[in-house]
Nucleic acid binder design. Structure first.
Length: 412
DNA sequence: CGTCCACAGGAATGACGGGCGG
DNA sequence: CCGCCCGTCATTCCTGTGGACG
């Protein structure tokens, strides 16, 4: 009975409590607003670049640079959806296809995705990359359209798959007789050209657009604009607004981050039944976001990555070397009954944990005593215990770890 | 000033579970 | 059913290397 009345309270206060949000969706970062403050120049430039397609001419390829949360994706989608509407008005055959390369994952899937956007169905595996590309090309050429391809986060794909597929794409027009293709590449990494074949690079960046990070003032305007749509009037305090902008500005001017902070702060405040979103709510939101991120990351690790992380946990010292970790990992595998991986493999797993921010790995040389990586936990030990102990499979490893810790202490 | 440790991390290759077209 | 190809994970083999020690 206690439980259900508690739940009643939760539901009742949600329904009857103070309503802070008018429209939560507006704060999600995939939402494209009617107005993109401080990006008027970029909108105009990109608009001017793609405009020729309205007269059935191919437009220049464009390369867009800028860090995360600087509005690249929003501007591209904004301009292209308006272009599409205009094209309908003028009867121009324009179509665009937006692909996020990092999410899509491989060149195969990028081409598959492109094919689907021209109405072909492609199996998720089984064909050669070249075959998929050919199908896309002939599929596209069976129409007479001006096709604009947006490759978002293309740097991610180029870095681990190379730029061969980009080369193919940039040359596709030579083999098309009816349709035309233009490419808009979007990169988070400003040094992308270092990874690109000069021929690919020059043909891709017929036009270049750079998105500077927003400063705190600009972020503030963006948030203000959105908060009018997302919150009831007067529920957002000035100080909360300022602190959101300041925190996000400190993190390379990331508007996405600012919006997340604001949304979660609103949720925190709503849960507390507060009438006003305060600076304190934003601070809590900051912790909340980080906490969730880490828990999600921990849960989704593969078995061996978990064992590696547990080894670092178990070593329980300020910094451990690869070799030390491998020894402990070796024992844990035995205890757990899992086949063990090589040390070479372990090295890459550690690097993955590092890029997820779960550990910090740094190569150091100890001269006479070799060259290795120093690995340090980046997250709290209690969090690891919480997540792994709730998974029954691992509880035994914690008992074991307690025993081994005692052993370690005796030795030292 | 060379040596040599304890690895780093690239390249090539393989095993695996999937699915293709014929 | 076959032969082929996909992506993913992992192994094997390898060359490279910063700097304390002798």
């Amino acid at each position: 009975m206690g439980n259900s009345s508690v739940l009643d309270d939760v539901f009742d206060s949600f329904v009857n409590g103070v309503r802070l949000f008018k429209d939560r969706e507006v704060l999600r970062h995939d939402y494209i607003p009617e107005k993109l403050p401080h990006r008027e120049d970029q909108i105009r430039l990109l608009g001017a670049t793609v405009a020729p397609v309205l007269r059935d001419a191919r437009c220049s390829n464009v390369f867009i640079y800028g860090k995360t949360g600087t509005g690249k994706t929003a501007v591209a989608k904004f301009v292209l959806s308006h272009l599409e509407a205009k094209a309908k008005e003028y009867g121009a055959n324009v179509r665009f296809c937006y692909i996020n390369c990092r999410m899509t994952g491989s060149e195969y899937r990028v081409f598959a995705s492109l094919s689907q956007s021209v109405g072909l169905s492609i199996p998720f595996t089984g064909l050669s990359v070249g075959e998929v590309f050919d199908r896309f090309r002939s599929g596209l050429d069976s129409y007479r359209i001006n096709f604009i391809i947006v490759l978002d986060e293309v740097d991610a794909l180029i870095k681990d798959r190379g730029d061969a597929f980009m080369y193919e794409l940039t040359r596709i027009n030579e083999t098309l007789s009816k349709s035309k293709v233009s490419i808009i590449g979007i990169s988070n990494d400003l040094r992308l050209k270092e990874f690109l074949d000069p021929r690919v690079f020059s043909s891709l960046s017929e036009e270049e657009l750079v998105f500077r990070p927003y400063d705190a003032g600009e972020l503030r305007n963006i948030l203000l604009e959105r908060s009018k749509l997302s919150f009831q009037e007067g529920v957002l305090s000035e100080s909360a607004l300022s602190i959101c902008s300041a925190l996000a500005a400190a993190e390379h001017g990331d508007a996405r981050r600012a919006l997340d902070l604001l949304r979660v702060a609103g949720e925190v405040a709503e849960r507390e039944n507060a009438k006003l979103i305060t600076e304190e709510h934003v601070r809590q939101a900051e912790k909340h976001i980080e906490h969730n991120r880490v828990i999600e990351a921990l849960k989704n690790l593969t078995l061996h990555s978990k064992l590696v992380l547990l080894s670092v946990y178990h070593l329980n010292k300020p910094s451990a070397t690869t070799g030390e970790i491998y020894d402990v990992y070796n024992e844990l595998c035995g205890e757990f009954g899992a086949g063990l991986l090589t040390q070479r493999r372990l090295g890459t797993l550690i690097n993955e944990l590092d890029s997820m921010g779960l550990v910090n790995a740094k190569v150091v040389s100890m001269g006479r005593y070799g060259r290795t990586k120093k690995i340090r936990l980046e997250i709290s030990r209690s969090l690891i215990r919480d997540v792994f102990e709730s998974d029954g499979r691992f509880s035994r490893l914690f008992e074991y770890s307690a025993v081994a810790c005692r052993k370690d202490k005796k030795e030292t």
